[in-house]
Design a binder for these strands. Structure first.
Lengths: 188, 188
DNA sequence: CAATCAAGCTAATCACATTAGCCTGATTAT
DNA sequence: ATAATCAGGCTAATGTGATTAGCTTGATTG
């Protein structure tokens, strides 16, 4: 049994029953082995497994949004990126929970984990001609918005009947307008 | 021993050692009682306790930001609200984790939990003369950004050396500009 | 004064996580 | 070819924390 396959199974389990429900026992059951055997693959136990799930999730998100952004530029690239992100979260609620779980592990790996995605965002912004610093601000703002929006949406935290799709487009529009304003400032 | 006092102690514990470290045993120890006794206050066990911590957190955040917004309007109100929110999270990392934990409990209480804060945001936006729908979009956008930014910041997820305070101000400025643009559209 | 209730306690049960040590088939080195 | 090694599983055993059951006692209430 390959390590990557185990992680993938765990990720599926998270999506089906929630990240919190992942346990060595459950996972072992689903794999048809006994839980102690899992320690042959993850000597660090549940902690290591969770960390691997998190990293797997970021890799997956990275590849999904990369696909969408290829060949696009400016607003088009940013919008597709954000749509892809949101779609990813909707399809991987449990995995996304795991991905946010990188708080107890404040080390290199966690930063690297989301670095791939940050990189894609940077590239998407490259054609706007912003200063490096403004690009950083913008990427951070987009990340923050995306993470917050998707988390709240997933958790059913937005109670109002007003369309969430419209809110999403509205917010993207606001952000893109903000970027456009900055460009004007730059051109002067 | 009063229920509210227990919840408060648990919240302090969360801030000190992280939400994940809260256990019936730990909490009982800190309170000087045995863990089974806690079930006299929380018949629903750990789940109920966690839920109460979450609700306590939202009440607290609600009251903090309400204080800051009183007597202010427009940009001033929004900015103070957001600063207060960010400050709250910085001072209550563990509690804030608990507050986000309302995913497994998708019921009335959870919506009500954050409703107080949403209400304050609405009031802060009242003087802009936006349509109801745009107000909803705006509140959602601000909530999303705030939640994402504070979570990522708290988890140390922003690796770049660029100042986070500047990013925060930058983002608020972008959002406020967006609101201003909408007003123009309305006045026509 | 008796009944009731709140809030603690101890003992017992359960569900994992994790460790220790054993086994077997496949791979590798001699 | 044969012996040594290793990967990947297994069973048995330990430990911790949640939860339940049932007892006790001081305070409240009828």
């Amino acid at each position: 049994m390959k390590r990557e396959a185990i992680i993938q199974t765990a990720a599926e389990m998270a999506d089906e029953k929630g990240f919190a429900s992942i346990s060595m026992k459950e996972l072992a059951d689903r794999l048809g082995i006994k839980s102690p055997s899992l320690y042959k693959h993850f000597s660090g136990g549940l902690d290591e497994l969770n960390k691997e799930i998190m990293l797997y999730g970021w890799r997956l998100l990275d590849s999904e949004i990369t696909k969408e952004v290829i060949g696009k530029a400016k607003d088009d690239a940013v919008i597709e990126l954000c749509y892809a992100y949101r779609r990813f979260v909707a399809e991987h609620k449990g995995l996304y929970e795991a991905m946010q779980w990188y708080n107890m592990y404040l080390s290199d790996e966690h930063l690297q984990a989301s670095e791939g995605m940050v990189d894609v965002m940077f590239r998407a912004l490259s054609s706007y001609g912003l200063t490096e610093e403004k690009k950083v601000h913008t990427v951070r703002m987009i990340r923050a918005f995306m993470q917050g929006f998707c988390t709240i949406e997933c958790h059913g935290g937005y109670g109002n009947p007003v369309s969430l799709n419209e809110t999403f487009d509205f917010a993207l529009h606001t952000i893109l307008t903000g970027i456009a304003d900055m460009q004007e400032g730059t051109e002067k």
